[in-house]
């Protein structure tokens, strides 16, 4: 259940930055290669914000699909499972996106 400590990190950073103002919403960017389950993050968020300035805030998750650039054939592909392979079969690929785990912004009242 690493989503709990990850979500705690998000809420801590947001509350610190809010400096006492109520937090209305928080936007995070989560890549599909990060092993973070959005539903679990959402559940944890509701629990972790209780009693903080972010209580009741909405969590927007911008889920980023995984994409690769193949160094063998040059193709850019989107991948849907965690096996990072190009369609040509090469494993010599750059992961262009899918590993994001960032707090993008927040809306304060």
């Amino acid at each position: 259940m690493h989503e709990l400590s990850i979500t705690q990190s998000i809420v801590d950073a947001v509350c610190e930055r809010a400096a006492g103002r109520p937090v209305l919403s928080v936007k995070v960017r989560v890549g599909t290669l990060t092993a973070v389950v959005p539903e679990a993050m959402r559940f944890c968020f509701g629990v972790v914000v209780e009693g903080t300035v972010a209580e009741g805030a909405r969590l927007d998750i911008d889920l980023r699909p995984a994409a690769t650039h193949c160094r063998t054939c040059g193709a850019d592909s989107e991948i849907t499972d965690p096996i990072v392979l190009c369609r040509c079969g090469s494993a010599d690929v750059d992961v262009v996106s899918g590993r994001e785990l960032q707090i993008v912004s927040m809306r304060v009242g």
Binding site: I6, A13, A19, Q102, I103, S105
Partner: peptide, 19 residues
Amino acid sequence: VHPQEHAQPRTITLEQKVL
């Protein structure tokens, strides 16, 4: 950071890694 006297909702950009 001490809150300033304002009431208008506004968006704050963070763009920081969660971890």
